[in-house]
Write a protein that binds this DNA or RNA. Sequence first.
DNA 1: CTCTGTGAAGTCATTCACAGCG
DNA 2: CGCTGTGAATGACTTCACAGAG
Lengths: 236, 236
Amino acid sequence: MKSEKISELTTNRLSVYLRCLNKLAAAGIKTVSSRALAEQFNLNSAQIRKDLAYFGEFGTRGVGYTVNDLRAHITNILGLDTERRVGIVGAGHLGTALANYNGFTASNFAVVALFDNDRELIGRTVGDAQIKIYDVRHVARVVRAERIDVAVIAVPARAAQRVLNGLMSAGVKAVLNFAPARLNKRPDVKLKTVDLTISLETLSYFLARPPATSTTNPRGLLSFEELTPREDENEL
Amino acid sequence: MKSEKISELTTNRLSVYLRCLNKLAAAGIKTVSSRALAEQFNLNSAQIRKDLAYFGEFGTRGVGYTVNDLRAHITNILGLDTERRVGIVGAGHLGTALANYNGFTASNFAVVALFDNDRELIGRTVGDAQIKIYDVRHVARVVRAERIDVAVIAVPARAAQRVLNGLMSAGVKAVLNFAPARLNKRPDVKLKTVDLTISLETLSYFLARPPATSTTNPRGLLSFEELTPREDENEL
DNA sequence: CTCTGTGAAGTCATTCACAGCG
DNA sequence: CGCTGTGAATGACTTCACAGAG
């Protein structure tokens, strides 16, 4: 184990590894080698070993890794053994959809508040969990009262910087931004932006300039591959 | 201009450049150098020039780029001058939120259909645009009838591979996947996955292991930076 | 002189390949 | 033996730095 700084690519992969290990555990598998893991989930075994080695020596030479131990280690590395409390700013279509999203729970996140500036929405609740919508002007107070760790920005691009500033002032250190905007942040704050515009436009690029079509199947008929996706090893 | 293959990082940035140019155009600016563009939007000027050079020589030495010309070129490169027709599979919270999302229109995308397997939902319509929800079993037919180019997967992870297979059989070549799953695809299909689980868990990692705290502001008080975000150059 | 377009240098990430532990 | 953990090799992406166009 070394004490270099860890690339976000590595932490992203740790999240993937954890998902894979959860599937293995659910299937009753007790032990796995980096090679087996790599083959089953289309990963690179050297990379798995390298990623893990940043944090410790979790394997047994000649054997591999104990599934449950490794799960526990990665869960701990990613901080998923502590519950995170989430506030969502923007109670529009996207914000409320996220408030109802179950994926949060699996990773030990709990959505505890929404915020909006629309008088009509403030005071209402969202979803079965009855999550309350607060006035966005009261972020600081609610962040404190509800002990919010993580914020989600689901407002129009033009309001995103203002909202981020408010969240940073309130002491929020981790923010997931869905607004298609490049935001300025303090260096002690972690900001991840999910930019749908960029994703869509990149897809469009691909449609406009399809890569050199393989000569083996010029008509675009269904390939073998499509008909036989490798089992449900894909259902992570 | 060379004919190498273009990295997705480059196409992502082209989308960003286009957004920046749109702002400049809206502000009435006619001409811009790579340096001016870089400084204004926190980019690297050499990278801008390199990215553009893959596709042609759009600038004038000693002057820079004509904003409107460059906009037109990038719009063309990204294929945004052709309308793309989008089908969304999964008419749950996320699917309907996306159907109502305005960001599509700006990039010349039109959502023309939703799909679900829930009897209760099939036949209903969503949003002001009255987009119809079809039976997911009829994807192939509807893709043909509605000339759908791009699909969005907004179903639970366990159903995502099945849905992708159906879409590929139906001839869809570009797919945006929101299910937290690693999917197998044919090489002639472009798949972009937006994995919220990975994003959240990476944020959690950051909270669990905050990077070496700068000694200048140990108490985490507000920094100058936070109080003075650089104008609305951020509102892309 | 300014700014583009681009080889060359530099940085960062992935993959190889093997010493050495169990 | 088989497999981990890891230096060394390769590859990918970014930034530098400058020749040459305007």
